[in-house]
């Protein structure tokens, strides 16, 4: 990691290796710089860290509890362990907890981490008392989105993207408390009746497929979702002069979804309804 002349750096130890990073860099980023893979669900490049999933925790010497690496800035002389028994235990348990309550089939990297940490999400479900799960019907309320709370890990990303990290529409928030907490509109009214403006930025950040483009949901339902065969082409949206970059995901010569690169200085991964869904006319939809 290179620092410009005006930036100061800090030096910390990660698993015995000394790493130098720009002051203000998170432990998570420092781990990345050190080549250490750190699992995370609720962190995203384009959102403020909420550090709720706790799968990225690391052990910092001198700190009583484990520390969320995604949010804590690295400090000079910090000694960090990412592979201690405590860290591995907590990561394993968080993965087990999540897997015991929701369906993680579509969650990117999850299967790999579950394998890596030896998590067994099934051990909570026992015949004398089944483990409680989310158990909500799939909400299909319009032609653009679906919501499937059985996949929701409550990472807050959609709420952040809908709220003050991007869209400032606040159509959804966390409602309820504890295990009963849900991402919800007011009084769980249907999305088309809510403040939702269908920018799709919630979908773009969802790590588990709990909120999804209906185009993808339909193809999955038809067992015809083939991400390995899809091409992704970057272009520029035509609907106004802002210059948002679009990544067109194409399968069998048809656009199946549209995303935007999170590292782009204009969009930071966020789009509006036209950029996200306005492509259908290309395939003659009218």
């Amino acid at each position: 990691m290179t620092a410009t002349e005006t930036e100061t750096t800090v030096s910390l130890t990660i698993d015995g290796r000394t790493v130098e990073v720009v002051a203000g860099t998170t432990i998570h980023k420092a781990c990345e710089a050190a080549g250490t893979d750190t699992p995370t669900l609720c962190w995203a490049e384009n959102l403020t860290p909420v550090n709720v999933c706790r799968v990225c925790v690391v052990e910092v010497e001198g700190s009583r509890a484990l520390v969320p690496s995604c949010a804590r800035p690295a400090e000079d002389a910090m000694v960090v362990h990412t592979d201690s028994e405590r860290v591995r235990h907590s990561r394993r348990m968080v993965l087990e907890f999540l897997g015991s309550g929701v369906d993680l089939d579509q969650a990117k990297d999850l299967a790999r981490w579950i394998e890596e940490y030896g998590a067994d999400p099934t051990r909570y479900d026992q015949p004398d008392l089944p483990a409680v799960t989310i158990n909500e019907p799939v909400r299909i309320q319009d032609d653009l989105y679906i919501r499937d709370y059985d996949r929701c890990v409550l990472c807050y990303k959609c709420v952040e993207a809908c709220g003050d990290d991007a869209q400032h529409t606040f159509a959804i928030a966390v409602a309820g408390r504890g295990f009963g907490a849900r991402i919800s509109t007011e009084y769980d009214i249907e999305l088309p009746d809510s403040a939702c403006v269908y920018c799709g930025n919630c979908i773009a950040v969802c790590p588990t497929g709990a909120i999804q483009f209906k185009s993808e949901f339909d193809l999955r339902a038809a067992a015809d979702w083939r991400p390995d065969e899809q091409t992704v082409t970057r272009t520029v949206c035509s609907y106004c002069g802002v210059g948002c970059n679009l990544d067109l995901h194409v399968q069998d010569g048809r656009i199946v979804k549209v995303t935007s690169p999170v590292d782009h200085p204009i969009t930071h991964g966020h789009l509006c309804i036209k950029g996200r869904f306005g492509w259908r006319y290309v395939h003659g939809g009218r």
């Binding site: 550090n51 907890f97 999540l98 909570y124 409550l154 408390r177 504890g178 295990f179 907490a181």
Partner: peptide
């Protein structure tokens, strides 16, 4: 009952402990 539900260890852990 009193877990706010924000972080996974507490939200799910308190449920699994009670169960």
């Amino acid at each position: 009952d009193e877990s706010c539900g924000q972080c996974v260890p507490c939200r799910v852990g308190t449920v699994r402990q009670h169960e």
